[in-house]
Design a protein around this nucleic acid. Sequence first.
DNA 1: CGAACAGTTCGATAGTCATCTAACTGTCGA
DNA 2: TCGACAGTTAGATGACTATCGAACTGTTCG
Lengths: 92, 92
Amino acid sequence: MAKLTAKQLERIARALAEPRRVALLKQIGARTAATPCAALLEVHDVTPATLSHHLKELEAAGLVESVRAGKCMNVTLKRDVLRAYLDQLARI
Amino acid sequence: MAKLTAKQLERIARALAEPRRVALLKQIGARTAATPCAALLEVHDVTPATLSHHLKELEAAGLVESVRAGKCMNVTLKRDVLRAYLDQLARI
DNA sequence: CGAACAGTTCGATAGTCATCTAACTGTCGA
DNA sequence: TCGACAGTTAGATGACTATCGAACTGTTCG
């Protein structure tokens, strides 16, 4: 199971501090299948540049995983990491 | 039970994004009795001004409650709010 | 190859915020 | 009342970051 370092915990916390990223996570987690970037762009009113930035941030935190399929980028939620983070906070 | 608005959720997330505040929360939550400000100052290497700022932030988020007793300020963790926040995230 | 498309990277801008020092308020004991 | 102590407020500074437009990379298809 995911064991998180202090640095990772901090990174996750900062990632979740941005409402837009939480909204992205929600959409990504809403289905078990990977979510294509384009679907995220349709829902959220940001430029591709900004979306890319947020996804990079989420990925750096370990909260999502991105896989390229041809031109299309597909994103999946890493629930175990999110769970591990919540477990840490619950221990407070 | 605590039902959190979107604004509150955002506020809590931002409060938890700062490692120092999480450390403060941990110390405050470590005992059931209220924690005096002075005890926090001893542990964390910040000026009183900075500590005051962080506590205000935590209080605005609803994560702690402060009660003045004479010269001394005592802080307690509001576990139900933290729990409600974690429940929200777990629902992702 | 060349054009169209999906996403990324760069550089700039603006807003937020952690931190400090210094000055302030309020409380208690002498 | 006066001074010491606990914490707060104000203002400044520096760091970080969300956002954008523009230029770029890589992929597919004609």
